[in-house]
Design a binder for these strands. Structure first.
Lengths: 232, 232
DNA sequence: GTCGAGGATTGATAAATATCAATCAATGAA
DNA sequence: TTCATTGATTGATATTTATCAATCCTCGAC
């Protein structure tokens, strides 16, 4: 592990409040790996031997069943992923694959569980992280069950816009094929959905989105913090 | 609180390993309430003042948006619910309503958070509970995104059957209107789905389900532990 | 027992979404 | 540059799912 990786990891909410000693113990067992794009990091059903921390690049989390595949989430730096499996010492429920070149820290799951027992501040951070992750998935379920695909897209755009600093134009973080899968629709349908949203002032140019009439789009999308605020 | 409520609560995985003193401190601030059927216990968006423990009866957890409503889960005794909101001190994401007469213990959220800080065994139990809840919702998301409504019903029946001790016949735990909402479909569609499953040996008589040909149904449903095993 | 009320079912139709096939456009390798 | 590959879009069609309306049960109140 490069020494300058430490501060980035240390700054994560999950590790921020750890005692110095425990953090170093964790880092001693950890190591960094570099991956090319399109590499499987994790396969569904495998034992969860490592907690992963993404330092650079993009990683997609997806699941498969009966020959079908769906995108469940994407992670951007710097974030941890698959904490729950690590804690439960249970098989991964999602697979992970690099979308770009990526640099990832692998921390042995045993060490994480040991640190949890040893450091109350770390325990608190883990609980906060899990509770937040849980709530985030519940919000996603509400999105899926209560909204049509067009409504999901409209609200997704508003969320991405907010992440981009509420600017009237922003870029999609990945291709539309993946976005379709994330939103639970086909690429063809996504194309048509974008076209339908033109009526509410949404313009697209490749992966660039421009929201012409904020109020109009929001009137249609009816965003709700209990679904769309993915931070609390 | 009736003294004979204590053992039931104490036996829950969440409280089982707590130090005696901490458990009693929690119980001192807690109180029991009895509710008639169809009473709102919790409304979406309200501050999460209490952790709830269901002692008797059935409670449904649901969510609404834009005039639509969907059932997200049901709880049976003895279980806690909405732990994540309590921990995060964040608004409830789901509403809760009694389906039958119900007896519920209310534990002030502050007390739960205090006990978390004071008792490492309780902290461990909370983490285990949250990690498990998270994984359970992820499995549900995979079910929703990867399967058709007919496939969801088939797998739901297999899960309920297993819960009923793998018997060839068992009763649905609530009415079909609710089941339809839980599975993300309309009651009309559920009726037709049951009819379609007759081809795989599923017979219904009111809320009673008989699985005539286990292997045949499983061949169609393709159950998968990474979706359908809701206990790990 | 009779009567209602609410859930369940059925049929007809509409809407949403997926599939299939055919371009079209962008991008990177040679 | 040119070609090949991959993603995006479009149109036509099929499938899935929802909606609407009309019964049909079932079960509890009286």
């Amino acid at each position: 592990m490069r020494p300058d990786d430490f501060p980035e990891i240390r700054a994560l909410p999950l590790f921020r409040d750890m005692a110095e000693e425990g953090f170093h113990a964790l880092m001693r067992g950890a190591y960094v790996q570099n991956f090319p794009p399109q590499v499987d990091l994790i396969r569904e059903g495998e034992p969860s031997d490592f907690l992963h921390v993404l330092l650079d690049g993009l990683v997609e989390l997806f699941a498969t069943w009966n020959g079908r595949e769906t995108l469940l989430a994407t992670t951007r730096p710097v974030t941890t992923f698959i904490l729950a499996a690590t804690i439960r010492d249970a098989p991964y429920l999602m697979a992970a694959r690099t979308m770009t070149r990526a640099r990832v820290v692998l921390i042995p799951s045993e060490d994480v569980r040991a640190a949890f027992d040893a450091d109350p501040a770390f325990a608190r951070a883990i609980v906060a992280d899990l509770a937040q992750s849980y709530r985030s998935v519940v919000k996603n379920t509400k999105d899926l069950k209560l909204r049509s695909s067009l409504e999901r897209l409209a609200n997704y755009l508003l969320r991405e816009q907010r992440r981009a600093g509420a600017a009237p134009a922003f870029d999609l973080p990945f291709d539309k094929r993946r976005l379709a899968s994330l939103l639970g629709m086909t690429p063809e349908n996504l194309s048509r959905a974008f076209k339908s949203l033109q009526a509410y002032g949404v313009a697209t140019d490749g992966g660039r989105i421009a929201i012409g009439d904020q109020a109009d789009l929001e009137r249609f999308a009816k965003p709700n913090p209990l679904i769309d605020d993915r931070s609390t």
